[in-house]
Design a protein around this nucleic acid. Sequence first.
DNA 1: ATGGTCGTTTAACGA
Length: 260
Amino acid sequence: MKIATFNVNGIKARYGAVSDWLREDAPDIAVLQEIKSTDEAFPREIAEEACYELHTHGQKGFNGVALLSKTPLEDVTRGLPGDDADEQARYIEGTAIGAGGAVRICGLYLPNGNPAPGPKYDYKLAWMARLEARARELLAAEEPFLMTGDFNVIPEDRDAARPEAWAKDALGLPETRRAWRRLLNLGLTDAFRARVQGPGHYSFWDYQAGAWSRNDGIRIDHFLLSPAVADRMTDCTIQTELRGREKPSDHVPVWLTLDA
DNA sequence: ATGGTCGTTTAACGA
């Protein structure tokens, strides 16, 4: 089973790119972020024409996440538990039933948090604490799961071309990295880092200042795997090539392959 | 130190 996460930066602007990607690369499950669309305005035919079941959790103009699956997902839920007043569409879960067993897919678009310090950074840290609580629940239930999406977290210096440029940014601040390590310390696996240790592997390049042409990137799109799912991983790769195409997103897909 | 680029929505705001 192949699962891909992709921050598309607007599903309408990326209609052609995402449509081509689904047909050519055919993930079994696609986890999308920043659809920037309401559920009603989402172009459903992008999924239907490529034979995907579609589940969206959108809002007008900003944020928004989606799950696309070749086979039906069970128990789809929307929103991250822990704050009933949170109106931002950043989280969706569904259970995939594969030959290797059931996996709970948690798709997320973690808050950017800039400027830091400030209320937006407070919201990011509170959101990360809620994500940790959700991970604890799933671990306690012994439910195999993965959390994937745009985490807006640069885990370590090797995950940025210029780490010094991010040291005081909400994506790279020590408190952000501590919250990330709390997730790892629960026993979750950073899938890409379990496969590749070296520097120079990124998933985002800013549109500005020729960041892509200078390979001035950061790795912020991740897969975190529960122990049972980590045991099933056979590969994890970044589809860097997509960033060089016409009218790209500023993020590229990250892929996870599980046995069966 | 500033501005540089996109997407959504149409004057800024978010990233």
